[in-house]
Design a protein around this nucleic acid. Structure first.
Lengths: 212, 212
DNA sequence: TAGCACCTATTGTTCAACAAACATAGACGC
DNA sequence: GCGTCTATGTTTGTTGAACAATAGGTGCTA
């Protein structure tokens, strides 16, 4: 929020890039030095990130990268179900932003071919953000993309980006096709089961990793 | 976020109480003096409130109370439609939090009898927060209550708290009864038309007040 | 009236300092 | 050995002062 909030952007970039591990503490003095800002400015950015859920703040114990628990994952998927499905179900049939969904699917497919799984994850996020953008609601978009960013931290936590994302690329395309050729309602239904499966996958990975 | 974030709470209280008018500027030095905190800590609180949408921050121009435009109102009601209706539709039949909905309706009825319209507005917020709480999702609750707080600023902006809220008290009760005795889906449908009517009322008030 | 330089108030940001809470390690008693 | 207490060092919470940078207003000039 300082200047043009580029500090928040820089921090966010590092967080979703996985350079700072979930649960890792973010020391004020060292990060301030690293980003060449004052401690006070950094703290302002921390408040923003905390409100977005990317960072956890415990009084007198500092800030650490959010480390979603299984309960958090369940909660996040609840949000996804309600928001994504509702938006898709009530979306107009030929919303222009379907092009963004299309683009995201293509990027995901290309990145998967190159086995760049981090990029696949980013493209996946872009796809689902595009779905929510069909609502034409800034606020829904903002809240939702925060939640998705948090979910990415969950993926980073269990470190299995590859096979978690791979099977879902084509399902993204399926949802898109059904939305285009059949109906938004049918696409929403498909997306619903999709999300259920995805959630199960993530929770399974959590269980295997022995995470709470 | 400082100490136990009571500063944010104090500021929020004043905002939703209408003591600071929508669009009104929040001077750092004067507010810092008023709340007896330093300018830096106040700025941290501002970042939180800005992220919650209660406050608008323009670089080098400072912070002002959010003053929702008609476009914002439309956006807010989009969120309400998607979130409230979806949650209610998929809520289990006898969710314990229905008691909170009941309680909110009763407070609203009592406050309406006393013509305490600000309290009616608060109870109305509590009712709809209770609806969303049926999702059992912390994140959905948090995001949604932020949006509702923003909507309250919209009400404050056009200064017609009374007749805007009054007709909707009994409709809250109707939704609750349908949810209990019929089905969540039927209640969701009723809530949908409810929200449409409510939105039209607010936009009408905006038009009459000549607000953008 | 339009354009321009100047001035002023406010924000953006930094720094240094201190109080308060926490974490660690060692001393102590059992 | 084990837990508890205390001393110490570290980190956060918060402050006040300072200065740079910007927006907005003022008055001048043409």
């Amino acid at each position: 929020m300082n200047h043009d909030s580029s500090l928040v952007n820089r921090l966010t970039a590092r967080l979703i890039a996985g350079e700072l591990r979930p649960g890792g503490r973010l020391s004020e003095t060292s990060l301030a030095k690293e980003f060449d800002v004052s401690r006070n400015t950094l703290r302002e950015a921390f408040r923003v990130l905390g409100e977005q859920g990317l960072v956890t703040h415990i009084p007198h114990r500092g800030v650490s990268v959010a480390s979603p628990s299984t309960a958090d994952v369940v909660d996040i998927y609840r949000v996804r179900h309600h928001v994504e499905c509702s938006v898709l179900e009530h979306a107009p049939r030929n919303h222009p932003n379907a092009a963004q969904m299309e683009a995201a699917v293509e990027v995901a497919e290309k990145s998967a071919a190159e086995e760049n799984w981090l990029e696949v994850g980013t493209a996946n996020m872009a796809f689902h953000n595009a779905v929510v953008s069909l609502s034409d609601s800034r606020r829904l978009m903002r809240s939702f993309s925060n939640v998705l960013a948090e979910l990415r931290l969950a993926f980073l936590k269990v470190e299995v980006l590859d096979f978690l994302h791979a099977p879902f690329i084509e399902r993204n395309r399926e949802v898109l096709e059904v939305y285009r050729t059949e109906s938004p309602a049918a696409a929403a239904a498909k997306l619903g089961t999709y999300l259920g499966d995805s959630e199960r996958q993530v929770l399974g990975a959590y269980a295997r990793a022995g995470q709470d």
